[in-house]
Amino acid sequence: MRTFELVDAMLPGDGQFPPASHVGVHGHLRGRLRQLGGDALVERLDEAMRDLDVAGIEREHPDLFARIRAVVFITYYEMPEVQEVIRALGFRYNATPLPRGYPMGRFAEADRPTHGRGHYVATGDVRRVDLSGLDFLGGKNG
């Protein structure tokens, strides 16, 4: 299995979302894995791809797979083409968190809670509680 085949198996696209390799995710995989775990992690990737498909890597090397998945998913959603699809689906979605942000307006006074629930024990009202039902106490942490 080659790198572009791996990322496309994970994120194949569906007509609206592009396959991962079409937006260049495979070009980032080794470099970002190296940032996570050095050359040893890249060597593990290469070795795994020689013998296994994605399901096999997930099954036999779950820790490696988790890191591959983190790189592939995060990298995919960084891509402008993918973010354009997110916006086309009707979501507000900025290319970067700042500078625009997502201004949310002001707190509405109508949202002030009126339930009246909640209590606290005042300093002078703190009393010894009955521990007789907690028979585990006496060991570690009590």
Partner: peptide, 20 residues
């Protein structure tokens, strides 16, 4: 969490499925 983090499971680490 934005799209990448949501797909990885923000608090529970339950990630979105891979594949189709």
């Amino acid at each position: 969490g934005h799209a990448g983090w949501q797909s990885l499971g923000i608090l529970s680490q339950r990630a979105a499925p891979w594949g189709a």
